[in-house]
Nucleic acid binder design. Sequence first.
DNA 1: GTGAAAGCGCTAACAA
DNA 2: TTGTTAGCGCTTTCAC
Lengths: 361, 361
Amino acid sequence: MTTNRRKPAGRPATLPDVAREAGVSRSTASRALAGYGSVSPDARERVRAAAEKLGYRANQLARSMITGRTHTLGAIVADIQNPFFAGVTRGITDAARAAGYQVLLANTDEDVAAERAAVKMLRDKHVDGLIVAPAATTETAHLAAAHAAGCPVVLLDRQAPGLPADSVTVDNHGAAQDAVRRLLAAGHRRIALVSLLGTAPVDGAGAASSDPVSTGLERIEGYRTALREAGLTDTDTYLRTGTFHREDPADLTAELLSLPEPPTAVFATDSMIALGVLSAARDHGLRVPEHLSVVTFDDTDWARAVRPRISVVAQPVQELGARAVHSLITRIEGTAHAPEHIVLDTEFIERESIAPPRSGT
Amino acid sequence: MTTNRRKPAGRPATLPDVAREAGVSRSTASRALAGYGSVSPDARERVRAAAEKLGYRANQLARSMITGRTHTLGAIVADIQNPFFAGVTRGITDAARAAGYQVLLANTDEDVAAERAAVKMLRDKHVDGLIVAPAATTETAHLAAAHAAGCPVVLLDRQAPGLPADSVTVDNHGAAQDAVRRLLAAGHRRIALVSLLGTAPVDGAGAASSDPVSTGLERIEGYRTALREAGLTDTDTYLRTGTFHREDPADLTAELLSLPEPPTAVFATDSMIALGVLSAARDHGLRVPEHLSVVTFDDTDWARAVRPRISVVAQPVQELGARAVHSLITRIEGTAHAPEHIVLDTEFIERESIAPPRSGT
DNA sequence: GTGAAAGCGCTAACAA
DNA sequence: TTGTTAGCGCTTTCAC
């Protein structure tokens, strides 16, 4: 038995309803509404009118089943409450909407297991692609699998060497180096870096011991490079890295400030760390910038409102998100091409948190 | 012709693949996996093993078409970059995920047209329900329509009188009143309020002239109540309200501070406004709290890190989001019941931004 | 307890 | 240009 009953008032109008109202077949109605194939102007108009009259809205679920496209993107970030990711997410949702896509959001708290679970859920929902700020640089099998299975992935903010995916990042090394150079130029020699990394701390002399997020690592390397340039060979004396959820940046800073020869300047690798640095400085009765110069990554709202205003390395947060969306959609809708790696410029914004050290090194 | 071909390696496994592998019918396989109806333990186990072997993941799109449930929630907020909404969104995504739901996110920038468009897109995607911080209190026909059509709506942070929907808010009137009382208790008489409202400014004597967001209005009323309690009848002398995107809170504050008899204390209705107030105070060479006491809604990260630390009315942001999710899911999964209005407590956190005025009123 | 068959709302070959 | 036909992958009566 075919579905020839008339549409009851309560039920939302379906395509057969529209077709019947317009006096055409379902396929013609479908073609007219989706705007493909060829339909006579007359039929097209009748269908349009019928759809309007019935308040017809296409069932995207049914459409997606056929076309294989949901026009939905998945965004996986560490923490939407972090102003950096809030800005990035804003950029993502805006760009996505402008391109006719919606965004499913997931937080990972820098936890790879949570990231894996998120990828699984989002793929179950058949997102057309994934924008991921990966929690780890090496454990990316789930991302590679998604990519291979035709769910394109673009990496945001962070790289993952093994993965043949597009990426949108900033030049963390260069930006950090530049920031530290400014501290050096002001006369500082005892310059600290405070950071939080994904998993394991960077110890003493060498490189990272484990698999932390690449961003932090690059900033640390930029810091070291700048110090070495200035002839400071012992680059790790004032280097303090903690682990998310385990260490508090304020404590790391407090420890630095209690040193016999405390740093005269601190470089914070993001705005939430800078807050900890500021807080510790205050607890030690230190004024910025007279007693302690401070520079941080990320130009948050408060950096230009507090006293003194904080000098920052500003990242183009919204653009980071928007470019990720564009890369992703290009890959979803376009033909295969080699992974592209977009590197956006940062901007150093000089404000009032840098002063010469009180006593020379 | 039935679909009897064997599963090619490239294609993801489907239910027929699993059924064939397990030697049962599709219906049995479906029952075993979804865990309804009755299936013999033996068959259940064979199906489970087959699914595991083939790496089967159910197509949620297909499932949703049948069941009418997508296990997806829509969240419509003003601006994810506002720390308040960032916190709320965090609460929403976490609670949703814990309950087996995903979240589609949309920003409105307090624009009703954008909100309407978002509701339309999200409903097209068949979200099971909507969490909305409505941009306007009266223009809510699109929300009422969604609700009536079986897509439940819960209001977040803001009320909409005409709408028979659940809501989760805080006691804005009481919290504002309490905050202003503390300023009064410190000896202030010239207390300003700076706020940004949805559409039209609140002028002179009366109530709102148009349809701004209820939250701001309630805070203004709380402010007026506290002033009246203290015998200050002229409650609007230092009341300054602007419009989103049009006025800058710093300008509103600058104007106040240029008055012949400037206020000695300012109450900001959210953290982004507080930033403007602080900035204007600095530009006027005023120190907080010696020259100007400051209190604000929302306990953002920076409020406890800046010097002086800012006294705030803290809202339970994550809980606000979580409770909204629970209300919504209860309504989605449960039976019809009268709208419930949850009002959460705020907490006044006393810090260092309030001092007695220099010259008594 | 299990399978056959119908069908959710839509698109896409293919014929006409 | 248009209609017919066949599904997408799954759930779900309804007999057996």
